[in-house]
Every structure is written in C-alpha cells, then in structure tokens.
Nucleic acid binder design. Structure first.
Length: 113
DNA sequence: ACCTTGACATTGG
DNA sequence: GCCAATGCCAAGG
C-alpha cells in the first residue's frame, strides 16, 4: 500500500467545494493517479478521524451513489448531499448541474507535486 | 507468485 | 436507462 497516494487523494477531495460533486476517476486524475479510480474509493474508506474530508461529494462517473441503494451508507451520504442543496433523485445526482470544474487555483494545487 | 476483491470506468446491446 | 462484459490496479490472503 502507498500512504503517499492516499494522502494526495484525501487532499484532492478536500478541494471539492460545498455544493459541488466529483467522480472517483476525476479525483484520481487530479491527484496525479490516472486510471486508479478504485484506489480513490479505497482511500475514502480509510480517512483519518482527525482529517476533515468531504467523502460524500464523490460519485460514480454517471452521477450515481456508489453504495447500494437503501444501504445505511447510501442514506447517510444522500442526507449530507441534500444539506448542501444537491438534488439526489433515483439514487443519482445530475452531474450537468453539480459537477465540480477545477479552476486555476486547483491547477496550482496540482503543480505542487 | 497466484487468486480474489472492490465506495470504478467504458462500451455495446 | 439498465445490464453484462472488459479493463483496470492496489491490497490482502
């Protein structure tokens, strides 16, 4: 395992603003780990308690919640998204309206590696 | 080293 | 849009 990768993933997720969402693959790319979307999911399962990471803003590439519909995790995630006025219908978010578009500030963030 | 397991993504029907 | 097949890649046995 590579905790350096995990750390980069957590930091990248922290850059997703409230009210916006991103996909696992998008986070992997921005973290400098193209092709490793699955690693993002794994990293979000090991977020340190002391760190504040908006894991719930990360969705599948088609906007669907990754957890099984009806599961406790899914219900909690949907609740948190709705607190940020993100609309969740049929277990999915309309990316066209809520997907995060990294700006120049984020590009600078990326250059730090 | 081999096999299995995912909070994934893309493509084709 | 749903489903199945593939490709993918790090972790853990």
């Amino acid at each position: 395992m590579n905790s350096d990768h995990y750390h980069r993933i957590w930091k990248t997720v922290q850059s997703v603003p409230s009210g916006k969402v991103a996909s696992y693959g998008q986070i992997a790319d921005l973290a400098g780990l193209p092709g490793r979307a699955r690693l993002v999911g794994k990293a979000l399962g090991y977020v340190p308690d002391n760190m504040q990471v908006p894991w719930y803003r990360i969705l599948r590439s088609d906007g669907k919640i990754a957890f099984p519909a009806g599961s406790e995790d899914a219900v909690r995630q949907i609740g948190l998204l709705q607190q940020e006025d993100i609309v969740v219908l049929n277990h999915r978010v309309k990316l066209a309206q809520f997907q995060w578009q990294p700006d120049l500030a984020e590009l600078l963030f990326k250059l730090e590696y």
